[in-house]
Design a binder for these strands. Structure first.
Ligand code: MN
Ligand code: MN
Ligand code: MN
Ligand code: MN
Lengths: 231, 231
DNA sequence: CTTTTGAATTAGACGTGTCTAATTCCCCCC
DNA sequence: GGGGGGAATTAGACACGTCTAATTCAAAAG
């Protein structure tokens, strides 16, 4: 059995690998988990002893296949729980992260199965993050790009909102921006801000750090069929 | 904040007080929680430091008002969770105890409120155990008696089943005995067994240790109205 | 090929919850 | 009013996850 802490380290390392490039440095993990570097060194030694990570001293770590499975298991729990809390208990999408962060370590496999069934095997959570399958295959990151990287014009659909700040999430939802929202970039201001226009006609201005967190793609209706070339 | 362990000690002490008579001995707690007596001594010292229990060395402990509130909070979580798991996730009543035993320590007050609302503020759990109110007033034990104490004849309604063994609970449910079941005592055998007859006509024989765990009362239809004297 | 310097590791400590072994205490019985 | 015997506590230890302070390392700069 793994401790709650071990699970959190594995989840953090896995996520960091997905974003930046492996191996992941001690200090990076320390910042992510809000602990000191010596703490990371000692925890990482334990994970390496159990073959959950590959470690090269002074270099950093990468997850092994086994470690990755553990991370995906916890991520599946987390995202299923977030979906469950919003769908079945009426939570706001801004509140679910904290609750899921705790519960993800304490639900049984039975609970996981039953929640997934009750939700009809969902594939994305309320923030648009993909939910790993029961088989725990690595989720391929949705082909989406940051809103901040787009020029003016062109219809876009919100795919994911990679933000955890409850106040910001609440603001976005109130403004009408959640996964599935269709919008166009109206103006890219030179002061670190973009303004988008929603289908409702409403205009919403967003500072860069928010626009960075919003991932968009071409709207479903305008996308080529899966597996069919665009030619 | 209290640790998961402290919560479990408090819950155990509270329950033991309700059954036997206070103060509760070190060894009794040790057996209940499956730890050694020195472990209990040291934990109980910590609880006394925090004014959660009253302690008299070499005598035993009793919960303070504050300790009782903590115990009731955890018991409320436990029983709400059991009810939720059976009602909303389709768990069998034999499976819910274990899952609730863990989750009771990890859900937020928000979760508690939302689950209670989703269930329409239930008053008893799947085993017939009363659920403490949100205000955490001590639950007065339902006026029910053990099936094993009844003579032959007389209609009775199952109020609670105080058993945790999954195999036994499954057997009872399969036999048609759950809270709400109406039955009559058919035969009290001198070999430590009672046979009851259900409304369906089925007869079910139960060894004493099971009959001890089944608490019964007069059926609803035959009970005097609340607050109205029987004269 | 050195030196520098910032990151990583080692050393040593602490709080929590648990254990076993040793000791002490309470209380019942003679 | 002692003795005994069983329960409770004390003593000392360990695993875990964390910290601060000291040391060592590796990689960039000179
Ligand atoms: Mn977590
Ligand atoms: Mn999410
Ligand atoms: Mn528990
Ligand atoms: Mn119950």
């Amino acid at each position: 059995m793994l401790s709650e802490q071990m699970e959190d380290y594995l989840k953090a390392i896995y996520r960091l690998e997905r974003d930046g490039e492996p191996p992941i440095a001690t200090s990076t993990i320390a910042e992510t988990l809000d602990v000191t570097p010596p703490t990371v060194t000692s925890m990482v030694e334990k994970l390496a002893d159990r073959d959950l990570v590959e470690r090269e001293k002074y270099k950093g770590v990468t997850t092994t296949a086994e470690g990755e499975t553990v991370a995906l298991e916890i991520i599946r729990h987390h995202r299923l729980l977030e979906t469950f809390l919003t769908e079945k208990l009426g939570y706001d999408w801004a509140e679910v992260h904290e609750e899921a962060e705790v519960l993800e370590h304490h639900i049984s496999e039975e609970f996981e199965r039953r929640v997934a069934a009750a939700l009809d095997e969902p594939e994305v959570d309320p923030h648009g993050d993909p939910i790993p399958s029961e088989a725990l295959d690595p989720v391929d990151d949705v082909s989406a790009t940051a809103l901040s990287e787009h020029e003016e014009g062109g219809r876009l659909e919100v795919a994911r909102v990679r933000d955890r700040d409850p106040a910001e999430l609440t603001y976005l939802a109130d403004a009408g921006i959640t996964p599935g929202t269709v919008l166009t970039v109206d103006e890219v201001a030179p002061i670190g801000m973009v303004t988008v226009k929603l289908e409702s006609g409403a205009e919403v201005s967003l500072p860069d750090h928010i626009a960075d967190a919003i991932q968009v793609r071409r709207p479903e209706s305008e996308r080529p069929e899966d597996g069919v070339s665009e030619a």
